[in-house]
């Protein structure tokens, strides 16, 4: 922010007010542009069924992304989420195979993920290790635990609740989508309408100032790392239901997409700015892009390249629309 007094528009006209507001919504325009593009170039893209499809495809990312939003808002990062999701899925399947009565395998999975998140939090907040490094180490630990529990095998005994939530329907709607929507909703309510949520934003905006105002910033950071781990765990538990099996690498590849979706929506990597609505837009951009490219006939050797180009274009567009920070 410049120290100069801001423009206080007295006679801006509706158009300028609209433009000023639209800056905040740059990612929304990106999303609409993508939807328009694929609607024109594919005859199967624009349908109610496919819309449901897209929601279903981003559901796991959404569950994970909710926790990541919390983490990024405090200016931390969690590189272990996808591995913790895999781990939670493996734990749930492992204890189901070991005939632990339901729903204890799921409880165990969430507790295990939460415990790893707590270690992330303590490492970051108490010991002062950068979250980048703690969670990088944790990604190996989670991945290693998955491998150790499965011994490289794929587990097919899943908790029935995972099966239901992962691939069941209620009133024609996928449970998975409902779980994701609820997770996002709860995340949003916590961030916007609780004291803790305010602390999360303020800790990210200026940790030192938050501490000076009596906020227990270490506690807040520990808590968001646990939240990140719990949502990852939830993603893992319902995710195995979606895939029908728990493999020792099932969700590992989702890391970049999950963080990418959150950032794409406009949540800052530097903390304090963003939120669940932004994350939802980011998820939809990514979801529409991935889904749409499967709906148009693209040379398979070009697909990754095109995905990258469109993503870059979307980011540039976001920046152009948001107006570069003036100095």
């Amino acid at each position: 922010m410049a120290n100069e007094p801001h423009d206080s528009p007295k006679t801006p006209g509706r158009w300028r007010a609209f433009l000023a507001r639209s800056r905040e919504f740059a990612p929304v325009w990106t999303l609409l542009a993508l939807v328009l593009f694929f609607s024109v170039y594919s005859d199967s893209f624009l349908s109610l069924e496919n819309a449901g499809n897209i929601l279903n495809q981003v559901a796991l990312l959404a569950i994970m992304g909710t926790g990541i939003t919390f983490v990024l808002l405090t200016a931390q990062i969690d590189l272990s989420v996808s591995y913790m999701a895999t781990f939670a899925g493996v734990v749930a399947a492992y204890y189901t195979a070991a005939h632990l009565p339901q729903p204890w395998p799921i409880v165990a999975a969430l507790l295990a993920a939460g415990a790893l998140g707590w270690i992330n939090g303590v490492g970051t907040a108490r010991l002062g290790i950068p979250s980048f490094m703690v969670t990088l180490a944790m990604s190996l630990i989670a991945s290693g635990l998955s491998l150790y529990l499965t011994r490289g095998r794929i587990l097919f005994d899943l908790p029935p609740l995972s099966e239901t939530l992962g691939s069941g329907r209620i009133f024609g709607v996928k449970w998975l989508v409902i779980v994701a929507a609820l997770t996002l909703l709860i995340g949003h309510l916590v961030l916007k309408y609780t004291r803790f949520g305010r602390y999360v934003y303020m800790t990210g905006a200026n940790p030192k100032a938050a501490e000076l105002a009596g906020v227990n910033t270490r506690g807040v950071i520990t808590a968001v790392m646990v939240i990140g781990a719990l949502t990852a765990g939830l993603a893992g538990v319902v995710g195995i239901g979606r895939l029908g099996s728990a493999t020792p690498t099932a969700f590992d590849g989702m890391l970049i997409d999950a963080i990418g979706a959150v950032v794409l929506g406009g949540t800052s990597l530097f903390g304090g700015v963003g939120g669940i609505p932004q994350t939802i837009v980011g998820l939809l951009i990514l979801g529409v892009l991935r889904n749409g490219l499967d709906q148009v006939s693209v040379d398979i050797y070009m697909k990754t390249l095109i995905t990258g180009i469109i993503l870059l274009a979307a980011l540039v567009f976001n920046i152009l629309f948001a107006g570069r920070k003036e100095n």
Binding site: M1, R198, Y201, M202, A205, N206, K208, A209, A210, L212, A213, G214, V215, G272, V273
Partner: peptide
Amino acid sequence: GLFLEKPIYQNVSL
């Protein structure tokens, strides 16, 4: 001591 990017009231009430 302050959150420059946040509104005054949030700075005051924290």
